[in-house]
């Protein structure tokens, strides 16, 4: 026992020194320095950046943001990691702008469906990340202001295209609806025209892709025009009740209407005091 006591005391002293208060901070600084150095050494040169039309600085910022916030699931080189996150090679800037811009990414939790929430990054950070992902492989670009300008859209035609292609999931008035096993088509009432356009181009999550070859940009604008016009439209028949069709109307009819009738009947039959 006594023979071991001295080395033990030394070890204990060492371990005490290891747990110095500032040790984690030092370690962190060291790690950051190494990462930064490695980055400076291995950062891609301007070729891809020039191709994507973004500055080297933006791309570097985008890559850094990607590595910090996305790489855990989507892989260090955006190659994806099995079930956690798909590959982002070739998804294009439009997919990044949609997923991060609607707050779906970074994901809060992995469930049946990643839900939209408050936007986590600034617009500048999003465009930097989008530029980085777009520099990996060609993919759909973020639509311009003109692409989504629906002021000249043919709303009637847009309604027809919407009802054939979109209404089965997103509901006739864009109120959204249920899919299988907890998945759902979200409501389109508060979706911005750019995000609608990007969703059609890229097909996020369960949604199919509606590429420009099969649904022209003009038709996409028509759909956006239809949705934006009808969602701003008042309901001439009275209360809209969420515009989800017979479910809410039936619920009000059965619960409120019949409830009131039953209440009246009970009151009629009760003896006055």
């Amino acid at each position: 026992m006594t023979r071991l006591s001295k080395p033990l005391a030394v070890l204990r002293a060492l371990s005490r020194r290891r747990r110095h208060r500032l040790a984690p901070l030092l370690l962190l600084l060291l790690a950051l320095g190494t990462t930064g150095g490695a980055y400076a050494a291995f950062a891609p040169t301007g070729d891809a950046a020039a191709a994507a039309g973004a500055s080297t600085q933006t791309l570097a910022q985008g890559r850094l943001l990607y590595l910090k916030n996305c790489a855990t699931c989507h892989g260090l080189n955006a190659e994806g990691s099995g079930t956690d996150g798909p590959s982002l090679i070739g998804v294009g800037a439009a997919a990044v702008d949609f997923q991060v811009g609607t707050g779906r990414m970074p994901a809060k939790e992995l469930g049946a469906q990643i839900q939209a929430k408050r936007q986590f990054f600034t617009d500048g950070q999003i465009s930097a990340m989008a530029a980085y992902v777009a520099s990996l492989a060609p993919g759909p670009a973020i639509p311009s202001e003109e692409d989504v300008n629906y002021s000249d859209a043919n709303i009637a035609e847009g309604g027809e295209i919407y009802r054939t292609n979109c209404a089965m999931c997103h509901n006739f008035a864009g109120s959204g609806g249920a899919l299988t096993r907890g998945k759902y088509a979200p409501s389109l009432k508060k979706t911005t025209p750019t995000h609608m356009y990007e969703a059609m181009l890229t097909g996020p999550q369960s949604m199919p892709v509606f590429g420009d070859g099969t649904m022209t940009p003009e038709e996409k604008r028509d759909i956006i025009g239809f949705l934006k016009t009808t969602s701003a439209e008042p309901s001439p028949g009275g209360l809209a009740l969420g515009k989800i069709g017979p479910v809410s109307e039936g619920a009000v009819g059965w619960l409120v209407g019949l409830g009131a009738l039953i209440g009246c009947a009970v009151w009629l039959g009760a003896k006055a005091r």
Binding site: P208, V209, G211, T214
Partner: peptide, 10 residues
């Protein structure tokens, strides 16, 4: 060639 993978056309 215009039909994207994951795309749907009615």
């Amino acid at each position: 060639a215009d039909v994207p993978i994951g795309g749907v056309i009615h």
